[in-house]
């Protein structure tokens, strides 16, 4: 029984309640504003006119009001049922962080696993002039992870006066990330013919060595390799997979460029220079006017 009362006294809730009471009494016992050296301009005229007193009263009132709100809030928090609720709300934060971390870790491990699988396959036989084994799954998973786990944070609706600016900035960051993902996939795919050509070259050199037909002219090997490489590139470039990845990359680049320009246009508004958008509108007007003038000139020429 004694232990129980001891435990209840040292429980987090009891400690929290005690701490709240102490804090409350500290703020309650706080002498009212201002202390001995209160805010004063030190100006004699102000003092004469009683301005210091008015200022003091204003500050006093404001301080006392804040103090009362604080103590009221503390009193409310010190209630046993509120203490529990406060503790529960505090517990949700780590839980939220845990969930988030777990999700990200799962995805990260999945990507890691894919990469490991890819590394394991490095030494395997590479079929020449075939691109069926291109491991696009890795990039697909990464993109999916980005789209499900990260992209949503850039799409959180913004609020308030700066909403549009914030939206454009978020879009810029999002498009940048998507472009990076796309370009990495493109570069990876573009490197594959290199990898394959080296592998084929190695095999051919082995065959030559076995036959004892080793060239002493290195240019011959280079010519052999460049021909193999060219063949691999031709196969890759004609594949629908490559066309798809290239189109995706170009699209991602265009979208990133557009988002960047929109964001920069916001920044440019702070400077005394016209934005590209404004200039484009002006160019359009000039183009239309010029066309109209040319048409009219032709008509006048025809009549005269």
């Amino acid at each position: 029984m004694g232990d129980q009362s001891q435990n209840s006294k040292t429980s987090p809730e009891a400690l929290f309640a005690d701490w709240m009471k102490t804090t409350m009494s500290f703020w309650e016992g706080m002498p009212s504003w201002p202390p001995a050296a209160g805010p004063s301009s030190g100006n004699d005229e102000d003092r004469k006119e009683g301005k210091t007193g008015e200022t003091k009263n204003r500050f006093n009132r404001s301080f006392e009001s804040s103090q009362r709100i604080l103590t009221a809030m503390m009193a409310a928090l010190a209630e046993p049922e509120n203490v529990n609720a406060s503790f529960k709300s505090l517990e949700t934060l780590p839980q939220f962080m845990m969930n988030l971390g777990q999700q990200m870790m799962d995805n990260y491990l999945m990507v890691q696993q894919k990469m490991t699988e890819r590394i394991q396959r490095t030494g395997e036989q590479v079929p020449p002039y075939s691109f069926d084994d291109i491991d696009r799954d890795l990039f697909k998973k990464f993109r999916e992870m980005y789209q499900t786990e990260i992209q949503k944070y850039f799409n959180v609706p913004s609020l308030g006066l700066n909403r549009l600016y914030q939206d454009r900035y978020n879009r810029f960051l999002d498009k940048f990330n998507l472009y990076q993902t796309a370009i990495n996939e493109f570069l990876y795919m573009f490197y594959i013919p290199m990898e394959k050509s080296f592998s084929v070259m190695q095999e051919q050199m082995e065959t030559l060595a076995e036959k004892g037909e080793f060239h002493d002219d290195f240019k011959a090997y280079y010519n052999m390799w460049i021909k193999i490489l060219e063949g691999h590139y031709m196969t890759l470039l004609k594949s629908p997979e490559y066309t798809e990845v290239m189109t995706q990359t170009i699209d991602a680049l265009a979208q990133y460029k557009q988002a960047k320009e929109d964001f920069l246009a916001d920044l440019l508004q702070e400077f005394p220079v016209p934005t590209l958008k404004e200039m484009d509108a002006l160019y359009k007007d000039i183009y239309v006017l010029k066309k109209r003038v040319n048409d009219l000139s032709k008509k006048v020429e025809e009549k005269t």
Binding site: F190, P193, I226, L229, E230, Y233, M234, L237, T247, I250, D251, A254, Q255, K257, Q258, D280
Partner: peptide, 27 residues
């Protein structure tokens, strides 16, 4: 996507097109 390219770049950059031509036979 010609529409997207034209909207984004306004004028199609010569360097980008040249890169495309180089990629026709990189080796």
């Amino acid at each position: 996507n010609a529409d997207q390219m034209a909207d984004c770049y306004k004028n199609m950059p010569g360097d980008l097109m040249n890169l495309g031509f180089l990629l026709l036979n990189p080796a």
